[in-house]
Simulated assay, not measured.
Amino acid sequence: MRYLVLILALFPGLAMADDKRVAFYAPPALVESGLIRHIAPRFSLKTQVKVDLVSDPAKADLLLGPEGQALFSGLGQTWHMELRGEAKGAQRFAEWLTSQVGSRTIQGFAPEGAPIFTKPKVQKAAVAKVEMTGDAVVGQRLAWAKCGRCHVTERGRDSFGIGSTPSFFVMRGFDDWQARFTGFFVLKPHAAFTQIAEVTDPFPVDRPSPIAPIELTLDELEAILAYIAILAPADLGNPLQHQ
């Protein structure tokens, strides 16, 4: 330990390494566009934090790609920022990229006179318009088969489901229960493993469903909604508080 203290005292730059550098990954398309060469020096000049571009995403403290916070759009897609760990340099770069100065710098990149990148275009998930005209009896069976591994869907089967997920009876008591159930497949975590025929897009080839997918038709969803509509909301005493 004494040797470590001595080394840090003689070479204080080692202790500040994470404060003055950021291991950053950007996909080849962004690198080849010239955007990184445009923004990195401007950030470093302002903050004295060096941007080290790495070729392996696994070695990056901060990376651009399909996951995380939507940052900007261009080259046919929306690019997201993912911050890993607590390295000070990476945090400062993330803050700069999401600031007004960073956004203007990105959107001001126009190598041929015309900007390439814009504010992020975040698509709103489409919610199927479903009228509750289905068969409630069929819906009860489908609710158990499709949703019962996580939710309690009917009385007498309270031992099933995951304790941290609300039952259908609790959610039936929400003011917006109809909207929640109608569009459940776009809400986390359902979007990652749910497919509604003729409504949702197929899973990306590089990001398949993490578990056995739930597959429903609109007719089956109508039946489940018809069943939920006749459920008596759980009596929890005080009005439900939810976000």
Rank of each mutant, 00 (worst) to 15 (best):
R104G: 01
M81K: 08
K88G: 05
R207L: 05
L240S: 00
K50E: 15
P57K: 02
L225T: 12
G173F: 14
G89F: 03
L236K: 05
W96L: 02
T133R: 13
T200K: 11
I224M: 15
A223Q: 01
A136H: 03
L14M: 15
Q178V: 15
A40W: 00
G85P: 06
Q107C: 09
P233I: 07
G161N: 02
A9K: 11
I39V: 15
D158L: 10
A94F: 00
H242R: 10
L4D: 13
A58N: 07
A143D: 04
F43S: 00
L45E: 11
K50F: 12
F93M: 15
E86T: 09
A212L: 11
S73P: 07
A9P: 05
I39N: 02
L10Q: 09
L236F: 07
G89A: 09
F109C: 06
V137W: 04
F203Q: 07
P233R: 07
A87V: 01
P27Q: 07
A26W: 04
G183M: 06
L6Q: 13
A26E: 01
L63R: 12
G237N: 08
K188E: 15
A94V: 02
V137Q: 10
T98W: 01
S164L: 14
L71C: 13
R42E: 12
G237R: 05
M171S: 09
V101T: 13
A9I: 06
Y3H: 13
L35I: 01
S73Y: 02
T105P: 07
G156D: 11
R21T: 13
V137Y: 03
L62Q: 01
I214N: 12
V54S: 01
E67I: 02
A94S: 14
A87W: 01
G156M: 15
G237K: 02
P41A: 08
V31N: 00
G139M: 04
F174D: 07
L225G: 00
V205M: 13
P210K: 08
